[in-house]
Simulated assay, not measured.
Amino acid sequence: MPAFSLEPQQQAWCAELRTLAAERLRPVAEKGEPGRVDRALLAQLGRLGLLERLFTSGALDLCLMRESLAHGCTEAETALALQGLGAHPVHAHGTPAQRARWLPAVADGSAVAAFALSERAAGSDAAALTLRADPDPGAGGGAGRGWRLTGEKCWISNAPEADFYTVFARTAPGAGSRGITAFLVPADRPGLTGSALDMLSPHPIGALAFDGVPVTADDVLGEADRGFRVAMGTLNLFRPSVGAFAVGMAQAALEATLAHTARRDAFGGKLSDLQTVAHQVAEMALRTEAARLMVYAAATAYDDGAPGVPRRAAMAKLLATETAQYVVDTAVQLHGARALRRGHLLEHLYREVRAPRIYEGASEVQRGIIAKELYAETPPPAGEAP
């Protein structure tokens, strides 16, 4: 299937999702408390079968879900995405027992998942994380090898209200990215505490403290000391879909701007009659469509196992999130003061659109990934040693 063309059934599914977001999910989301996990919204996502699709869909379908939900209800989009981010390592790398214990509950919305990678001094540089997993033979019990987790995590979505965390900790000091292990840590483990952070973005974000939290070989996701691959594999899947989230917001802002400028009286006509306004709207549409196509291309490359997935994923996230920031900001400018009033669609989008340029790898990190991949793919000039 060409990356630039959706099949009719995909287009129909996207339309259905936009309707569900506006008519069945937004009313539930509006009753939620900003900055808190909305379990009623998760339950509704579960009843609609959307959470289960996190484990049965490819990257392109994930992007279509996120874009379509974001168009009508960003809270529902984010709730779905955070479930996927936290649970994907369990789906992809968990043991049969781990998957059986947690994935059905994630799919029906009764268990909340979280992805615990970032730290105060290891956000963009994830390989520099310092949460320690100190060997503790006594903690292993019948499982054999055991560790105690000591340190902190920060900027963790769904913390501290999640029911389990995919936690990345250092099991081999001084080994960089090669000495990190991924653990599945239930929230009720002794020594694990958390606190909420009051952030601009309305979805829940918090910090976690680990005071000798016991984990065993039964809690490892994948292989010991190979957890960085678990983290990067998860991000390679979800980065294009962060771009899809951004495209959904940009599309909503574009449509609101088209409607507003076509009916707003100004300077003896409509705002849309002013060439400067019309050209700004055209630029908004151009950038949104370009970002959408790059997101679809990156997701299709992931699904096809094509080369260059990290570069494509980084490009998609970078272009789409920067584009959404531009489109939403321009939409606010063209709407004027009304767009800054609390409760206005654009006021909401303006708060939502800023965070994706930072989380799951800031824009600067994406540029670094793109450059690294490009140089790695470029052979040295003829006659020169590599």
Rank of each mutant, 00 (worst) to 15 (best):
P307E: 06
H279N: 02
M284P: 06
A297Y: 09
V327M: 10
Q280G: 03
A282R: 05
L318S: 13
D329V: 08
A316Y: 14
A331F: 11
E289C: 04
L286C: 02
A331S: 15
P307G: 08
E289W: 00
A291E: 00
A278R: 14
V281T: 02
M284E: 04
R292E: 02
A285G: 04
V309K: 10
Q325E: 11
G308I: 06
M294T: 09
R292A: 03
E322T: 15
A282F: 04
V332G: 13
T300P: 10
A313I: 06
A306E: 10
A306R: 13
T300Q: 15
A298E: 11
A313V: 11
V309E: 10
V281R: 05
L286F: 01
E322S: 15
A301L: 04
L286I: 02
A316K: 13
V328H: 08
M315C: 09
K317L: 07
A316I: 11
Y296P: 00
E322W: 08
V295Y: 08
H279E: 02
M284C: 04
T300I: 05
A324W: 05
R312L: 09
G305M: 05
Q325S: 14
T288P: 01
T300A: 13
T323P: 03
A299S: 11
R292D: 01
T323V: 10
E283K: 07
D303C: 08
V328D: 14
A285R: 02
Y296F: 14
M294Q: 13
M294C: 12
A301Y: 01
A306G: 09
A299M: 07
R311G: 04
M294P: 03
A285N: 01
V332C: 15
H279Y: 03
L318V: 06
G308T: 07
A282K: 06
A313D: 06
R292W: 00
K317F: 06
A299C: 13
Q325A: 15
A331C: 14
A301I: 03
T330C: 13
A290N: 03
A291G: 00
D329M: 12
G305W: 05
D329W: 11
A320V: 11
A298K: 15
T330N: 12
G308N: 08
A285V: 00
Y296G: 02
T321L: 09
E289M: 02
R287K: 10
T300N: 10
